[in-house]
């Protein structure tokens, strides 16, 4: 488990770098997919709801996005350091909630 967490710490860091330095050149219909958020969603879907490490990884992914997103200018309520961390946390908690309440896995 620790190996997997360490892997994801570096993996999310490199994804954030790829997102901000590489993918910005390759817009698809004017849109750049947010790889970090996609991976956060996948981590939370494929980790059992009772394992809370995925919440930590989501926070870390959001933190990386906050670090590598440049400041916004002018009045904007969503303009604060921690915006992506908050979004990632909410996504992770939402997925955990859905899986805990509405999805049942067979015990084999």
């Amino acid at each position: 488990m620790i190996k997997r967490i360490i892997f994801f710490i570096f993996f999310l860091y490199f994804l954030a770098l790829i997102q901000t330095s590489f993918l910005v050149h390759l817009k698809i219909l004017g849109i750049v997919p947010n790889l970090v958020l996609i991976v956060i969603i996948l981590i939370n879907i494929f980790t059992p709801y009772y394992q809370w490490q995925s919440i930590g990884l989501s926070l870390l992914g959001g933190f990386y996005l906050d670090v590598f997103s440049l400041s916004c200018f002018g009045p904007n309520y969503f303009c604060f350091f921690g915006f992506y961390t908050l979004i990632s946390l909410l996504i992770a908690l939402f997925i955990k909630f859905i899986f805990k309440r509405h999805v049942q896995f067979s015990k084999r």
Binding site: T20, V24, V32, S69, C72
Partner: peptide, 12 residues
């Protein structure tokens, strides 16, 4: 240039 923001019209 080393970085472009994903949501803003700005560069680093």
């Amino acid at each position: 240039v080393i970085n472009k923001d994903i949501s803003q019209d700005s560069l680093l």
